[in-house]
């Protein structure tokens, strides 16, 4: 695809092994998904090693596409550089449509032929979250397959208004078993959680007989529904002082954050946990609006 000032726009992928189209892995779709691209870079290195050792199963092929949107990353934009459209809101796409629609159509045309689809997705809220696998409840999702990633959590959610135009949803519509892998961060590199994401994918590929790789068995995932995540919001605006991190167990009544008046430094509000549970998400902006979702807590779950 040609662009006005940047020359040809080509999306590159790596294939590992030959034969049956087994797994397609897609990374960054937005210009701020640095962690997702980083995970892909680690995975590319690992898969190259595995292929070099002859440990891709015979008649199995893996496709890894690290980024669909490198121009936005180069230009410091989140969405598509030319028109602010969002590739992950453009599926199934149209080969005769706009640039993002063409990209979506081209990617889906290739990716739909794979049995398993894995996307390194970013969370819609800015912050840190517990690494997990997310699946939409379309009736075609498989909790037992998601469990094979060995992540601590598998989250299932109802379709949101925009889900029908995402890659994950359209993958499932074409019969690919699709999984979104969420890491701790998006705009910032977190090496530890990136390696957790890589391990989880290699574990899954091993368990599906696509590669041979000795790795830790991971977790027996806790399957949770998005309904079990309690949103905790700020009553007031100001500096956000975080007092509890992700993965920490909290009790009902615990003070988990403070809001500080940015002008006089006085405490405006204490954010109190409304439930016992485990912190699943915490926002990471230095300041918050009133009504910002500051935490999501998995209710009544203990370590």
């Amino acid at each position: 695809m040609n662009t006005a000032f940047r020359g040809e726009y080509e999306i590159h992928g790596f294939t590992y092994g030959h034969g049956d189209k087994s797994a397609c892995i897609v990374g960054a779709m937005r210009g701020n998904e640095y962690q997702q691209l980083y995970i892909c870079s680690l995975l590319a290195e690992k898969l190259s090693e595995i292929e070099a050792k002859g440990d891709i199963a015979s008649d199995k092929q893996i496709l890894l596409i690290p980024t669909l949107n490198y121009s936005s990353m180069n230009a410091g934009k989140v969405k598509w550089i030319a028109d602010d459209s969002d590739i992950n809101r453009s599926f199934p796409g149209n080969p005769k449509g706009t640039a993002t629609s063409r990209i979506a159509a081209a990617i889906l045309d290739i990716a739909k032929d794979y049995s398993y689809g894995i996307q390194f997705a970013s969370f819609y809220l800015h912050g840190e979250l517990v690494p997990h696998i997310r699946m939409m409840r379309t009736g075609k999702e498989s909790n037992s397959l998601a469990n094979l990633f060995g992540m601590p959590y598998v989250v299932t959610g109802m379709n949101r208004a925009f889900d029908s135009v995402t890659l994950n949803y359209n993958w499932q519509e074409f019969g690919t078993q699709a999984f979104s892998v969420y890491s701790k961060t998006t705009e910032r590199i977190d090496d530890e959680s990136a390696r957790i994401a890589v391990s989880s994918v290699l574990r899954f590929l091993t368990r599906m007989g696509i590669i041979r790789y000795d790795c830790h068995g991971g977790y027996i995932s806790s399957i949770i529904s998005e309904d079990e995540l309690v949103s905790v919001k700020s009553d007031s605006a100001g500096f956000f002082r975080k007092l509890s991190d992700i993965n920490k167990e909290v009790k009902r009544g615990d003070i988990i954050a403070e809001i500080i008046n940015p002008m006089d430094g006085k405490l405006k509000t204490q954010i109190i946990s409304p439930t016992d549970g485990i912190v699943f998400f915490v926002q990471d902006a230095p300041m918050v609006f009133q009504n910002t979702v500051c935490y999501k807590i998995i209710k009544r779950l203990h370590q």
Partner: peptide
């Protein structure tokens, strides 16, 4: 006026 392939 700036156009890329696929622009409406």
């Amino acid at each position: 006026p700036v156009i890329e392939e696929g622009s409406l």
